[in-house]
């Protein structure tokens, strides 16, 4: 899933302090799972904003909340078509994708981000999410024991660990696993350490963000 983290409420107040009617728009997908921008978090944010306005003596401010199934799909975003116009601003607590798609679909309404979108990752346990994929566009996991050096090595090295790998940890942080230690452990476990000996070709980064904004176009499913 896409993992996000809450923005400080002070920052969000900075965006909307001059607005009279604000819609806090949450998303039922990834940001709900990572507890950054689901229905619950939107409720908290909306409540905090209402109290902020009241405390400032702005009695006529109105802050509403609404949750969409997803903000990255048109049909769900259409659900607020009838009400969107009445707001001075939308705070989207979806990931950056949701914020942008909302802004795109509601062209004349300011849309502000309510979370910091961080990475694609997993829930290791409640309250701890870690990165797994950077979407480089050409998956090499078949050769690296199912562990990605692009996403999980601080230097995204393709041919083994740097000299800073120590006791299985990365040199930049003792709490961070060395991706190459994980890869080697896994290659040993599946009895494929021979894969390590093969020199990795220079990567074609044109399918990564280096190649500019990307798209996937599938004619077989287009009508």
């Amino acid at each position: 899933m896409i993992v996000a983290d809450k923005k400080p409420v002070e920052e969000i107040i900075g965006y909307v302090r001059d607005c009279k009617k604000v819609l806090v728009l949450s998303c039922n997908e990834c940001v709900t799972v990572c507890e950054a921008g689901g229905k619950k978090e939107a409720g908290m944010l909306a409540s905090a904003l209402r109290m902020y306005f009241a405390n400032q003596g702005i009695a006529d401010a109105q802050v509403d909340e609404r949750t969409l199934e997803r903000q990255c799909d048109q049909e769900y975003l259409e659900e607020i078509r009838d009400i969107a116009d009445q707001y001075d601003a939308i705070v989207s607590v979806a990931c950056g994708v949701g914020v942008q798609f909302t802004a795109e679909k509601y062209h004349s309404i300011p849309v502000f981000p309510g979370v910091n979108t961080c990475f694609m990752g997993v829930t290791e346990h409640r309250g701890l999410w870690t990165e797994r994929c950077q979407g480089c566009g050409q998956c090499i996991l078949a050769y690296t024991g199912g562990i990605c050096p692009v996403a999980r090595c601080a230097k995204r090295l393709f041919n083994g660990p740097c000299g800073g790998s120590s006791n299985g940890k990365c040199e930049i942080n003792k709490d961070l696993d060395c991706a190459w230690q994980l890869i080697i452990d896994r290659l040993i476990a599946i009895d494929r350490l021979d894969l390590y000996e093969k020199l990795f070709d220079i990567k074609d980064w044109s399918t990564d963000r280096a190649g500019g904004p990307r798209k996937v176009e599938r004619e077989d499913v287009q009508i």
Binding site: A46, R50, F53, D64
Partner: peptide, 10 residues
Amino acid sequence: NPMKHKTKPA
């Protein structure tokens, strides 16, 4: 509470 009578919850 400074909010007393000022807020109108949604």
